[in-house]
Amino acid sequence: MPLKKDYEDIPGTFIFDADKGREGYQLNQFCISLRLQKNRDTFGENEEAYLDNYKMTAEQRQAVLDRDWNRLLELGGNIYYTSKLAAYDGINFQQLAGLMTGMGNDAYRAMMVAGGRSPEGNRYQSEWDEKGDE
């Protein structure tokens, strides 16, 4: 019997489970390599050449080059890994969240200072479907 994924109806969220881990392995290994300065330097010299070291899919590779943060998560990236690529670009966690939510940095920061995103209406995908959100 397959393991039940009781977390798949949470809206706007990827749970980085074994399937995601398998799918994103090469992408995530690329991202974590950027935690070391020597690798950041090499990546900076020629991004395409550096990416040749990782056997990721063409879609994953393009999402890295495009800095398409949500696409990276859709393709098996995990936020703690993709944040290493963001850090390389000088983007911190809060700025990254501003990009992923589409709110922009100022509106996102203001939401957090006002107490954050309420769980009301944000627990189930069905609640987002009713609002017409994705």
Binding site: M100, T101, G102, R117, S118, E134
Partner: peptide
């Protein structure tokens, strides 16, 4: 405590919980 760093629901905070 409560936090979500990723994707479109980032920023979730649940003080009551």
């Amino acid at each position: 405590m409560s936090h979500q760093l990723q994707y479109k629901r980032a920023g979730l905070i649940n003080k009551e919980w």
